[in-house]
Amino acid sequence: MSEAARKKLGERQAWATPGGRHDRVVGFLQIALPSAVGVLAAFLAMAPLQKSNELSFLLSRDNVEIAGERLRVEAARYSGTDATGRPFQLRAASAVQRSSTTPFVELAELAAQLQLEDGPATITANRGRYNLDEEAVRINGPLAFRAADGYRLDTSNVFVSLHDREMRSAGDVTGRIPLGAFSAQRMRVDIPTRTIYLEGRARLRIEQSQGR
């Protein structure tokens, strides 16, 4: 064997002789490891009883992002049947229900479709508040009523009952029907028969066509 080989063999024999570095390490681990297991076991046994590390937290309400309304619907659609059992449909670009206590839904860009005897009729408006229980819309702003045969009624700020197929004005009202432009303090429209009742300083201006 070469000098280097003998020297290397000597180092490895020295490392392996009893009482050498390896024996000391093994001897230490023989004591350290079982005691570490014991300590850990003791810690795990005691852990649930200690108060300090309660890992619960309270979801604080103030810095969480809260939605203002109870329900927001995009492209909402409500349908129901009117007094005579005919279906009606109310569509809106957006519908917001402020709170669960009141059955009101704020509608934007709404369009109601009613089935009348002589075909469908539509009511369109920019803003309205739909009462879910009464199936009626309080329109604020202009409203356009169009019937199948071209009949047109334009007015604003009226209460439309889809169930009773009726419109009522809350107060002063102005508008236009085929016969002309009207204004009054109160108005009621029976949609199926297209009868318009105006009361209180009622005015009607009939612009005639020149065909006579």
Partner: peptide, 24 residues
């Protein structure tokens, strides 16, 4: 001119479009 606009004022107006009639 019988074709001129007709202005009507009343306490009550009832327009019955189906009957082509208006009652003041």
């Amino acid at each position: 001119d019988s074709n001129a606009p007709v202005d009507v004022a009343a306490d009550r107006i009832e327009v019955q479009d189906r009957a082509d009639r208006a009652i003041f």
